[in-house]
């Protein structure tokens, strides 16, 4: 910064000359969120990732964030529960959040490892002691700007895929949940934002 940037002296970056705690604005900006509105079954389309739906009219679990800066991190939270049906064996069930149609790379140069992914194990094997037909997905992750698409408008979409092959027509049913997908722009630690 310039010579006249007196904040660089450090003193005013500390707390006392800032307002008291109750006067501080939140640094969570531009919140967008989507509910799961009703009990919604979705059948996986082939062996590929399929969009999670939030109602029986087919709306996706998706949000669009128009951020104010391309330099800021985003806080992404996904949380909902559900059950699986339509097969009779064990499988891993993978979830991912894609942004503008693509998975989020772990680093700007890495397309192999991705962020905003989770996997849960389900087992519909008849009589199995490990029988597990329900799942709980909970994920909160801070995504740094360098791995986000170079665009102000970002479209977030939650998808699922059963990883075992030959399941036929596996299906998930998600349950109603407020704020099942939440995205926030994280602003700077500032008294003026």
């Amino acid at each position: 910064m310039s010579d006249c940037d007196w904040q660089g002296t450090g003193v005013f970056g500390t707390q006392v000359l800032a307002p008291g705690p109750s006067d501080l604005p939140s640094t969570e900006l531009n919140l967008v969120q989507q509910d799961i509105e009703e009990v919604t079954p979705t059948t996986q389309a082939g062996g590929v990732f399929t969009d999670v739906q939030v109602n029986t009219t087919g709306d996706q679990l998706a949000v669009t964030l128009t951020r104010t800066r391309r330099t800021r991190a985003l806080l992404v939270s996904v949380g909902f529960t559900g059950t699986v049906t339509g097969f009779a064996t064990a499988s891993d069930l993978a979830f991912q959040v894609i942004i503008n149609g693509s998975p989020v790379p772990a680093t700007p140069t890495d397309n192999t490892d991705v962020l905003l992914v989770r996997k849960v194990h389900v087992d519909l094997t008849p009589g199995a002691t490990t029988f597990q037909s329900s799942f709980n997905l909970s994920m909160t992750s801070l995504i740094q700007p360098e791995v986000l698409p170079n665009a102000l408008q970002l479209d977030f979409l939650v998808q699922f895929s059963f990883l075992a092959s030959g399941l036929g027509g596996p299906q998930i049913t998600v349950f109603p949940r407020e704020a099942a997908l939440v995205v926030k722009e994280i602003g700077p630690f500032s008294l003026t934002t």
Partner: peptide, 18 residues
């Protein structure tokens, strides 16, 4: 808008490789 319960700052990290 400005009240107790505001998020003052956020930090985070992710597993980025095996």
């Amino acid at each position: 808008v400005i009240s107790a319960g505001s998020v003052v700052q956020t930090a985070g990290d992710n597993v980025r490789g095996p």
